[in-house]
Amino acid sequence: MLDCEALTKAFDKTLFKNLDIHLGPGEILAVLGPSGCGKSTLLRCICGLESLDSGTIRLNEIDITNFEAEDRGIGLIFQRPVLYPHLSVSGNLSLASKSGHEEALEEVGLSGFEGRAVENLSGGEGQRVALARALLAEPNVLLLDEPFSALDSDLSVRLLKDVRQLLKKRKCPAILVTHNQQEAEMFSDRILEMSD
C-alpha cells in the first residue's frame, strides 16, 4: 500500500536517516517520539509539503516521490485545525467535495453544523470538521499530526477512539505522530519509535 524506503531528511541536524515505513491496507501506524525529533517533518515529507533529501515513496506501487502534494492523494490533519475563516463549515467541506457533507458531519458527530461560521467552533469541533473534510477528499492515506494535543487529555482520548473507529470502518490507512505513549498504544495497530 504505502511503501517508504530509505527516507532521509536533515535541516540543521539529521532528523531521520534511511527510515523505512510500510503500511498495509487499513493499517494504522503510530510514530512515537519526543518533540523536535522530526515526526512532523516526516509526515510533511510523506504528503509532499516538504521535500526529502533522499529516499522513495511509493503508493500502490506508484512512485510518488516527486509528485506535488496536491497530486498525491494523501490527507493531513494539522496540529491545530486549519479552517478557512472566509468560509462556513459547509464551505470548508466543499473544498474537498461538493456533496456528502451531511453524512461526513454525522460521522464525526457534528450533525447540523453545516451553516456554522468556523470562528464559533471549539478546538475539538474544529478538528472534527477538519477530519470530516480530510475524509471527504477520500485520501489513500491519512496522516495525523498530534491532532488533539491542544485539547485536555480526556477529550483527546475520546476523540482518538472515535477517529480510530471511523478509520477502521472506512478501511483507511493512517499514520499518527504523537509524543504520548498511551495515545499511541490505544490508537494504533503498530508503533514505530523515533528518537532524537
Binding site: 510533511r44 496536491e70 497530486d71 472566509h86 474537498a96
Partner: peptide
Amino acid sequence: SYDENARVLGMGEFSRFVKIKIPL
C-alpha cells in the same frame, strides 16, 4: 498551513489562488 492544507486536499495552484488566497 492554509495553503498547505489546501494542497493536501488536492487543490491545484490556480484553484488555491482563487478559492483560498484571494478570499483571505
